[in-house]
Design a protein around this nucleic acid. Structure first.
Length: 269
DNA sequence: ATGTCGTACATGGTACGA
């Protein structure tokens, strides 16, 4: 089963490029981020006519996640638990039933976290975007702990807005003080991994030069000034099913591309 | 080098987020 994650940066702007990629890559499941659409305006028919079931969790203008699946999606939940006051549409879960096992799909758009605001003691300023990011990552870890305790096989996929290591950026020094690469952010990422989760891409491929995002500005694509921030984290039972994980890099060079490209896995499910 | 996009809104240039 081929499962992909793709930050599309606006469904309206990607109404041609996204289905073109689907027709070519033929994923069974796609976790989408930044649909930038309310649920009612999401063009479900584009995907339904290709045989996908569609579940969305959107909001006006910003954020928004969705799941496309050629297999039925069950027990859909929207929003990341842990903060009833959080109104940003960044998280969706659904269960897909394979031939031998069920798998919980968690689609996420982790907060960017910039600008980084710190107080005189170096602590993130409460109510600021950086503090929101770190708090969101604590909530994500709590959710992963809950799924692990239930022994539910799961994957968490999406735009994590985290550069895990220096090798995941073409110019790591330029990201040193950025919320995507700050030690506080990477510490939260490590704590997620240390629950026993497997990062799918790094389970298959080592070394620098693998990116999933290139900024629209300053000719980042032409200079290959990229970063790897779109990831799959797998529970132990899910990691046992991993057959492959790749980045569809060439998509970035096509007409009207997103600033992210798809990352996909092949699971023995 | 605030250099590019996408979205929404007072449709035509701004504001915001990334």
């Amino acid at each position: 089963m081929k499962i992909a994650t793709f930050n599309i940066n606006g469904i309206k702007a990607r109404a041609e490029a996204l289905p073109a990629w689907l027709d070519e890559a033929q994923p069974d499941v796609v976790l989408l981020q930044e649909i930038k659409s309310v649920d009612e305006a999401f063009p479900r028919e584009i995907f339904e006519e290709r045989g996908y079931n569609v579940e969305t969790h959107g909001q006006k203008s910003f954020n928004g996640v969705a799941i496309l699946s050629k297999h039925p999606l069950e027990d859909v939940t929207r929003g990341l638990p842990g903060d009833a006051a959080d109104e940003q549409a960044r998280y969706i879960e659904a269960t897909i039933v394979g031939e031998n096992a069920a798998l919980r799909l968690c689609g996420l758009y982790l907060p960017n976290g910039n600008p980084v605001e710190l107080d005189a003691n170096g602590a993130p300023v409460a109510g600021g975007k950086f503090a929101y990011k770190l708090g969101w990552m604590d909530r994500l870890r709590a959710r992963a702990e809950c799924l692990l305790a239930e022994e539910t096989p799961f994957l968490m996929a999406g735009d994590y807005n985290i550069i895990p290591q220096a090798e995941d950026a073409a110019k790591p020094e330029s990201w040193r003080d950025d919320a995507l690469f700050r030690p506080e952010s990477r510490e939260k990422w490590r704590r997620l991994l240390n629950l026993g989760l497997t990062e799918a891409f790094r389970a298959r491929t080592q070394g620098p030069g693998h990116y999933s995002f290139w900024d629209y500005q300053a000719g980042a694509w032409n200079r290959n000034n990229g970063i790897r921030i779109d990831h799959f984290l797998l529970s132990p039972a899910c990691a046992d099913l991993l057959r492959d994980c790749q980045i569809d890099r060439d998509i970035r060079g096509r007409d009207k591309p997103s600033d992210h490209v798809p990352v996909w896995m092949d699971l023995d499910l």
